[in-house]
Nucleic acid binder design. Sequence first.
DNA 1: TTGTACGCGTTATCAT
DNA 2: ATGATAACGCGTACAA
Lengths: 380, 380
Amino acid sequence: MLYSVKGLTRVHVIATGVGSEWGITEGGCIMDNEPLTKATIYEVAARAGVSIATVSRVINGYERIRPSTREQVLQAIGQLGFVPNTSARGLSGGSHRIIRLVFKRSPTEDSFELIQESLLFTDAIIRGVERTCGRRGYSLLLGGVDDDNFDGRIDEMVANCDGLILLDRTLKERLVPEVAKRIPTVLLAGSGRSRSAVTVMVDNHDAMVQLATHLVGDHHLKRLAFLAGFADSPDSMTRRETFCQTAKELGASVEMGSEWYSDYTSVGAAQVVRERLASGVEMPQAIACANDQAAIGAVHALTQAGLRVPQDIAVTGFDDISVARHMSPALTTVHQPIEELGSVAADVLIDQTTSQRRPAMKNIVLPIRLVIRESCGCKG
Amino acid sequence: MLYSVKGLTRVHVIATGVGSEWGITEGGCIMDNEPLTKATIYEVAARAGVSIATVSRVINGYERIRPSTREQVLQAIGQLGFVPNTSARGLSGGSHRIIRLVFKRSPTEDSFELIQESLLFTDAIIRGVERTCGRRGYSLLLGGVDDDNFDGRIDEMVANCDGLILLDRTLKERLVPEVAKRIPTVLLAGSGRSRSAVTVMVDNHDAMVQLATHLVGDHHLKRLAFLAGFADSPDSMTRRETFCQTAKELGASVEMGSEWYSDYTSVGAAQVVRERLASGVEMPQAIACANDQAAIGAVHALTQAGLRVPQDIAVTGFDDISVARHMSPALTTVHQPIEELGSVAADVLIDQTTSQRRPAMKNIVLPIRLVIRESCGCKG
DNA sequence: TTGTACGCGTTATCAT
DNA sequence: ATGATAACGCGTACAA
């Protein structure tokens, strides 16, 4: 199929191995791009009139070097645009200055969802980790994993990097020690129960105590429900259990059976709510959701069914994604510093790979903050 | 400050260099993690009773090898959990099997925004690139960049990888040839005008023709406005110009002055709309926004001011992020395959680094799709 | 303070 | 079809 727009001829093409339709327009002309030989430490040494050892010392911030010598070397480096070859460094010194972030890759993009909802979390983590890596001179290798069954690929993960950040639910718990004893490892957002590696997480417990107290104590709600995320998500489960326990201690009841389980997505949550409505059972006075995406879906389903939020039923989220404040009603939720979670995890890991001394095996718990807006029943 | 929750003693600690408060709980005990020596090609060779050259050949899929020999080698590799050392590979062969994705890092996270809105795009790109890299056996190095002024850091970007993907607006246009002649380079979502590198982008033109036609032709709207993103964003500018041109050809007027410029965020867009409302000037009948985030902010501001969307004023977005369908009203927008954009860019780049033949210097244009929902005035 | 020389694990080029 | 061996660029003992 050929068509023309704006003077450019375009062609629909089936791209091999991608399964998508590409259009092709006229592009730039080819430049003369022979790989200009990259400068090596030898050339720098020659130009500076010193040995490669000296250059190496300057690069690595060795102290006892005559200032004038250092200056010459630095100048040569600048003139040649020299950048150390990381491969050679890794080979020689053993350290690659690379850390690998292992996470579960999203299912193949077959739906219309542009932004895979449950991945917002992973994205923010990636940003945080990337930032710290950049600041500390490390490179970040993304280790997306397709299924759970990569037991056999542990060797791959462990090789060619200095440390691992394991995102929650990517690796079966029993395999964590296997990995951790081979290479410095930090767990991100898990249960915190691992005895073989440090876990960096947010204070889910504190968050849900605050939330439940607000709903029951301040709003005097008595019949609540908790809309959970994946049943195997420690984050979701901790939130669920703490919420229920706290609410009950305060004299409220909480629906939390499997009929309230979902998958962290708007679509899934809306589905759960619709089923609850259809069941004919009286709805609770409030639904606390495991994350914001689910809350958005829940509000959507409730509104469609003619219920008003929060007048008829309150809804709360968890995450404080940016749209939370722009919804009607604005979403009451829990702010968690996701990006910082990744950033801290990277810091902890790099510390671990850097210092030879045993790391303090303490879990890191980042504080959260209850953000009260309108959807709980408070005035906007 | 000390406090105790759930039986765990926690301490607030100022984390050096991170500026955040960490809580610390009891963690796992230290394991005996001496770095089990990773197997090398020599050990594989020894165990298989062959030379390292043969092992190398097996690893790299060399054809003419006696099946029985190959089998022995494979077995040894499996038993030893051998994984080739990428550093050694890079040093020897020159190819690192690494591509670098260069993008502008978000401003320091000082606001409450959990998800830096304008970054959703980057995140999706990262996912797409990562996926392709994984599929094709490449590693993805994230090259976040803080400011525009990294002219001097070009050497760094170019070094230690086989190719570069440059995200729109990370590198000044005049510097692109500089980079492209040194290393295979693919531009992502730019103007498409570069003559020194292939650009992968979506069909903004087609999108806005469709959208303007729908608004003016189908809904008979005559006074429109376009709420732009960054003034230096080719994406935003292309959308703006095409929208205006098409609308005008169809007999409508379009407000598109600098008072309608914003920054791709909900907050920024809401601000612009509030200023328009406060100015006392009659509002247009429809506001087409450069992206969904902006549309969300616009709807929010309009609703707060007592205007109904779409009855009093229509609003459209661009991107089709997941919440778009869950808003009230559901957002009419343009679906663009962002993740695929990244995925295709990586494919093109890897092709370029792999084959020695000159790549066809054609830009790649991915198709978009107008998604009509409610906010334009159509029935839900 | 500075220089020399070896080794890191692979790939590739010769031989055989 | 397979083996021996020379790069590849850097860090680092060891010498000077």
